Each structure stands twice: as structure tokens, then as C-alpha cells.
Simulated scan of single mutants.
Amino acid sequence: MLLDRNGIAPDPWTHSDGAAVGNIAQALVPWQALPEALACRAPGQQLGVVLPNDLGLAEIEAILPELSLIAVGFPAFSDGRGFSLARQLRRAGFTGRLRASGPLIVDQFAYALFCGFDEVELPAANAGRQPAEQWQQALRQIGPRYQRGYGGGNILDQRRAARLTPAAG
């Protein structure tokens, strides 16, 4: 199941092993197959990669402009390295789709979006235990925050703006 801010989302990406990306409009390949997929890519084809969450930014930074989607793998919901990698990718200038892929839990959805992810891809077992309605409800439960993230201001910025705005009177 693929979820974004609006609920269940269609997934136009086709998983490939890397060698067979030729006629796939939007091919998603594992990190190990990326060099081969880049070499075999057709003009205008969109390419995505599934990254392990322990990959360093330096290993991928040079090819960020070549990618339309980066799916960061989460081997377990308790392994939060993917959240850090998402922040690093956004700070490095990646503007494509950023997907968290793995057994995340509802409580991590708002934080995943806050770190820069656009969507979360859940294994079938997790999707069965926590339906889309629970994920959407979790988004509504998180209020203003102090940290700066993606997709909105924070409490401190709101207070600063209020102080700088002249009072109507």
C-alpha cells in the first residue's frame, strides 16, 4: 500500500532488476542495479532507486539529478536512519519524489512527511494491521512543532511573524 498526505495513492512505478528498464516509463531499481539501469535508460525515461538506509549521502549525491524517485528502505520501524537520510537528501537539493519503504507504523507518518518524505510504501502485512484511515487520522493529531521541517512553519516562526506584524487598530 502506498500512502501520501491524501490517503492511498496509485503507484505508477514498476520495480525492475536494472537490466530490463528499457521499455518501462518509470522504473524503480535496487541500489546495486543503478549503474546498469543508468547505462540502459531510454531518453525521457524516469528512473528511481531503492536505497538502503545506511547509505552515506556522498555515495549518491552526484547522481541525484538523474533520479525522479528515491525510495529509502526501512528494514524495521525501530531503525530510524532513513529519516536522517531523507533530511540529508532534501538538504542536498533532491526535489524528486522521496518514498519511505518498509514496515513503518502510524505514529511515524507525520514525522516521515516532516523529514521530507512524500509518501510511505508499506508491506502488505503492515497495511492489513493499520488501514489508511488510521494513517490519515495520525496526520491530524500532530499539531504545531518547534523544529523546522518540510511543508510548513513552526511555532517560533509564527511567533516571530506575529511580533513583526503591526497591530491593526
Rank of each mutant, 00 (worst) to 15 (best):
R5L: 14
R5I: 14
G7K: 05
G7C: 05
I8N: 07
P10M: 07
D11S: 15
P12C: 13
P12A: 13
S16K: 10
D17F: 15
A19T: 10
A19I: 10
A20I: 07
N23M: 11
I24W: 03
A25G: 03
V29W: 05
P30N: 05
W31I: 08
A33Y: 09
A33T: 03
A33V: 01
L34F: 09
L34T: 06
E36F: 09
A37Q: 01
A39K: 12
R41S: 05
A42E: 06
G44H: 12
G44M: 14
Q45F: 05
G48V: 04
G48L: 06
V50S: 11
V50Q: 12
V50H: 10
D54M: 13
D54V: 11
L55H: 11
L57S: 02
A58R: 07
I60V: 06
A62R: 13
I63A: 08
I63H: 06
L64C: 02
L64S: 01
P65V: 02
L67W: 12
S68L: 11
L69M: 11
A71R: 04
V72A: 01
G73M: 08
G73N: 12
P75H: 07
A76Y: 02
S78G: 03
G80Q: 03
G82M: 00
F83K: 09
F83N: 02
S84R: 00
L85F: 01
A86P: 06
R87L: 08
R90I: 02
R90Q: 03
R90S: 01
R91D: 03
A92Q: 01
A92F: 00
G93F: 00
R97N: 14
G102T: 05
P103N: 05
L104C: 00
I105L: 11
I105W: 10
V106T: 12
V106H: 07
D107V: 06
D107R: 10
Y111A: 04
L113Y: 14
F114T: 10
C115V: 05
F117G: 10
F117T: 12
E121D: 05
L122S: 03
A124M: 05
A127R: 06
A127G: 07
G128D: 02
Q130P: 14
P131Y: 15
E133Y: 15
E133G: 15
Q134P: 12
Q134W: 15
Q134M: 15
W135N: 02
Q136L: 05
Q141K: 09
G143S: 00
Q147G: 00
N154F: 00
N154L: 00
N154W: 00
L156Y: 14
L156T: 09
D157A: 12
D157V: 11
Q158P: 13
Q158N: 15
R159N: 13
A161L: 14
A162G: 13
R163Q: 08
T165E: 08
P166V: 04
P166I: 04
A167F: 07
